[in-house]
Design a protein around this nucleic acid. Sequence first.
DNA 1: GAAATATAGTTGCATATGTAACTAAAAGAT
DNA 2: ATCTTTTAGTTACATATGCAACTATATTTC
Lengths: 155, 155
Amino acid sequence: MDHDDTSRALRLAEFLPYRLSVLSNTVSTAIAADYQREFGLNIWQWRIMAVIGESAGLTASDVAARTAMDKVAVSRAVAALEARGLLQRQADPGDARAALLDLTEAGRAIYEQIVPLALAHERRLLDTLTGQEQQALEVLLDKLASTAAQGRSLW
Amino acid sequence: MDHDDTSRALRLAEFLPYRLSVLSNTVSTAIAADYQREFGLNIWQWRIMAVIGESAGLTASDVAARTAMDKVAVSRAVAALEARGLLQRQADPGDARAALLDLTEAGRAIYEQIVPLALAHERRLLDTLTGQEQQALEVLLDKLASTAAQGRSLW
DNA sequence: GAAATATAGTTGCATATGTAACTAAAAGAT
DNA sequence: ATCTTTTAGTTACATATGCAACTATATTTC
């Protein structure tokens, strides 16, 4: 049989999880280097700036949910951003445990620079694809992501 | 203009590098947990087993090149595998600095179990896609990977 | 409305990872 | 042949990350 996996050889270079990992790593590393150099931000700090810039007043928990980061990573990155004066915390009137996060002036200034850079990175990747391919990519990523996420809860 | 990136908002959830990262992470984490639990192998040890199982007698440098790992990571993972008796080093007759790597009996026994598990993981992901989509995925990943790799050397 | 349980966020600790420095052997240059 | 440069691999150190334990506040239960 052509598709009998159980007897197929394992070739790392063709193994989907491996290819995804290498691709994602290559992309992330390039972008991360860029943001480190330009703004002194690491990838988590950057993610947080991105979501807070997009919708201000989120709590750390909200941020964690929207960035696929765990709460410890968020806590540390928020602390670093606050220390640099890029982000501020405000007491949450409804919950004394939580804090509402917002960019400072300085933070927003950087955010405004970050956005076009990020989009340019994305565009560079997508520009090698035809319009059809770009649409197909959307569908494929969604399908794969939802299958992958399913597995996580089952095991 | 519809495609004027420089004025488009940045929505993290739609940002390609982010989506790739989350997908890759979800997949890798699930598999890693599996291999840790079943065989006590981390992802790098696993990768090395995979390439050595596929072609014995590679050097650490060869392995690094084929696994997208750096030489330090290879060195550490090889040491751990050797310590566990899953892998052996043989002097390279042509180069006294290098060592040729092979699986031991015990290593091969684990390798034989690893392969079908890995393929099953991959199949689970691919099975949600139609045959056409699977083909499209190949093309897209190759294109994206080569574009991404290009960038790396330019910057 | 007290006691028990859950949640927001932080901190400590143990481990992982990346970078640079190092040792030893090869290859190249003069 | 010797000096220089490159390459294979390891080690050391500094930093990052993940997990568990913790503090403080909310929520639930009885």
